[in-house]
Each structure stands twice: as structure tokens, then as C-alpha cells.
């Protein structure tokens, strides 16, 4: 069976991985946490992105341990930027990527309501998630229309006239967004989004033993680090 964590547990993991930056944890602590986070990918059936993240992390650690001691000058500067700078962000990227790729919109709304986040924030958030695919689709239509008129065809053409490209792509996108915002408002008002009172939800979320177990597991590296064991 595939593992499914509660969105709130994912949020907790996200905050934890941000702590690695604040606390300047040791490499060992970081590796422990990253291993735990990465195994989430494999347990939830996201093998491909799990492997990709593992490869990136491993190569950065390897660069840090083996290349930096012998590097000098510019190479050192660049590599330390890469291996320390990017590597320190990686726990956040890993847990964020996990949260993003495994949470459905329904679960997200449900979790936000349970966390007592006001509707003023929830509604725009949902709209953002719902709207991303529309932007991609619009962009393709706009590029097709531009190609039909012989504007900016070819690979680098957009970069040759950046201001024109910006205007020709962004303005239609904005026009359409404006219309879609109206349509979406009508659609969601019909479904009673502005009704007062508690809303029911198709998706039910619940914190299970697995959630708590994983939260505790991921806290252990920090406890060990703060306790001076590592």
C-alpha cells in the first residue's frame, strides 16, 4: 500500500527542514533528515523524482567532501556556493516538492480549513492552483496565434525583442485571466462558496498513527543534534 501523509504532517516536515537552515545543523544531522525525507518519495510511489533528488543531493555532498579540499580560487568559490548554498536549501526543496506533488486541491482546502485559515486566504490559494494549467494552455494558444502572424517564430526569437515579447504574451494572458476570473466567480458562487457557515467537504483528512510516527522520526535528528550527540 502506498503511503499517504496528512497535509498537516507535510507542513510540519516543511517547517522542520527549514530549521536546518536556522540551526546550522551538522552534516550528519542533515543527512539523517534527508534520508527520512527521501524515503517518503519512495514509499509514496514517486520513485522517479525520488531518484532525481537523491542523485542531486549525493553529488553535492560528494563535491563538498572530496573536491572542495583540493579546489582553489574561483573554482572553490563557485563550488562552495553550489555545494553549501544549494545543499542547505535542499531539505526544504525535498520536503516542499513532496508536499506539492502528493497533495490534491481538495486535501489542501480541507487542511487549510482545519488550520482555521480565513477564507480570504483560502479562496485565492485554491484559485492559484486551479489556474496554473490554464496559464500553460493559454500560453500555447498565444504562441500559435503569434506564429500564424509570423511574430517571434523560431527558438531565440522571443529573446531578440524582449519588450515586444513581454507585451504580446503578457497582455493576452492578462485579458484572458480577467475573463476567467469572472467565469470562475460565477461558477463558484453558484456552488455556494460565499455562503456563511461551515462548509462540508468531499475529502476527509485525518491525522493517523503513521503521520505522528513520521513526525517524531523526523524530529529525532534535531533532538540528537541539539542534545550534542551529533
Amino acid at each position: 500500500m502506498k503511503l499517504r501523509l496528512d497535509p498537516r504532517a507535510k507542513l510540519f516536515l516543511l517547517v522542520l527542514s527549514n530549521l536546518t537552515l536556522f540551526l546550522h545543523v551538522s552534516l550528519r544531522t542533515e543527512i539523517m533528515l534527508v534520508v527520512l525525507l527521501l524515503s517518503l518519495y519512495f514509499l509514496s510511489g514517486k520513485t522517479k523524482s525520488g531518484l532525481r533528488m537523491t542523485a542531486v543531493y549525493l553529488s553535492l555532498v560528494a563535491a563538498d567532501l572530496f573536491v572542495i579540499p583540493i579546489a582553489e580560487g574561483f573554482v572553490l568559490n563557485f563550488l562552495s556556493m553550489l555545494s553549501v548554498g544549494i545543499r542547505m536549501m535542499l531539505p526544504c526543496v525535498i520536503s516542499g516538492g513532496y508536499a506539492f506533488s502528493t497533495t490534491t486541491v481538495g486535501e489542501m482546502v480541507c487542511a487549510m480549513r482545519k488550520l482555521k485559515i480565513p477564507e480570504v486566504i483560502i479562496i485565492p490559494c485554491v484559485t492559484v492552483v486551479r489556474f496554473f494549467p490554464t496559464i500553460a494552455e493559454d500560453y500555447r494558444h498565444i504562441r500559435n496565434a503569434m506564429a500564424l502572424r509570423g511574430i517571434a517564430t523560431g527558438n531565440m526569437a522571443l529573446l531578440r525583442h524582449p519588450v515586444q515579447s513581454l507585451e504580446y504574451i503578457l497582455i493576452p494572458l492578462l485579458m484572458n485571466s480577467n475573463n476567467v476570473a469572472q467565469d470562475l466567480s460565477v461558477a463558484s458562487m453558484t456552488k455556494g462558496i460565499s455562503m456563511p457557515g461551515v462548509h462540508t467537504s468531499m475529502t476527509e483528512i485525518k491525522m493517523t498513527k503513521t503521520d505522528y510516527l513520521y513526525m517524531v522520526l523526523c524530529t529525532i535528528p534535531f533532538v540528537l543534534f541539539l542534545g550534542g550527540v551529533m
Binding site: I123, P124, R130, I135, A181, L184
Partner: peptide, 11 residues
């Protein structure tokens, strides 16, 4: 208004 905000934030 909120939906408009969401749409523009996405952009």
C-alpha cells in the same frame, strides 16, 4: 475579488 486576486497571483 478574491478569485481575481488568485488569478493574478498565479500569473
Amino acid at each position: 475579488d478574491l478569485i481575481s486576486i488568485g488569478v493574478f497571483t498565479a500569473l
